[in-house]
Amino acid sequence: MFVELNELLNASPERPEEGKFTLLRDTKTDGSFLVHHFLSFYLKAGCKVCFVALLQSFRHYNIVAQKLGVSLTAAKERGQLVFLEGLKSCFDVLFGEEQQDGPPNPLQFMREDGSNLKTMYEFVHTSLMPSGSDSWKCPVLLVDDLSVLLSLGVRPVAVLDFIHYCRVTVCSQLKGNIVALVHSSEDSEDEENELVVNSLCHQSNLILWVEGLATGFCKDVHGQLKIIQKGSSELKAERNLLRIYQYKIQDKNVTFFARGMSAAVL
């Protein structure tokens, strides 16, 4: 996790917030560093994490997490982390024999017409349901890239349904958190994706929007981060608080600074 981002969001792993839906959105750049941040943040906070990783392999996440000071293999063994590796599971759906007994594959929708994500939801539900023995703090659902679901033939409404069900279960009933990443761009012709992104923006409590610089590539400033905090009941005066920072990604850390205040510029 990145300490500077925690300060900006006023969060700390000692007291993670509850019942929040955070949307990570990236435009013309890669926002995956935020996924790594939240993964290590919630693991350090002692939350039970269900990570639906559709984009990369477990090895990738594990190596990056080690750089951030968390071991995913250890967390898996402790039972703190439930990891769904999409790149492996899709393979079982396509080439594996259909097994009759046992839980269905979470990516079962690839065989069907993509009208529902029921098996995926059931997977999330069973992995986050508290069992008597463990004493983790609030449950967390982390999705690396909802946009992949659309590419795999799931209808946009099904994706929205899935997130809605997860919000009911994880955020309301279990008092947990959801973090999901989506890609978007303004001049995109991908209408399905835009529909999903806009609806999720409306539903979320916090939007972290990563954008590439409009003026192009820069070696010392990798992009800008918009933090949009939806007004809660206490904060009626300042609805939709918007803050913009620029950031630079380093090997093990990300530094954030006000616009134009990059160390390379000053």
């Binding site: 899709c90 393979f91 690839m110 033939g153």
Partner: peptide
């Protein structure tokens, strides 16, 4: 519309392993 993207996804899974 999803054939090519599905193919790429599964292929990437194969390559990664």
């Amino acid at each position: 519309i999803h054939s090519l993207t599905k193919f790429l996804y599964v292929l990437r899974g194969l390559l990664r392993m």
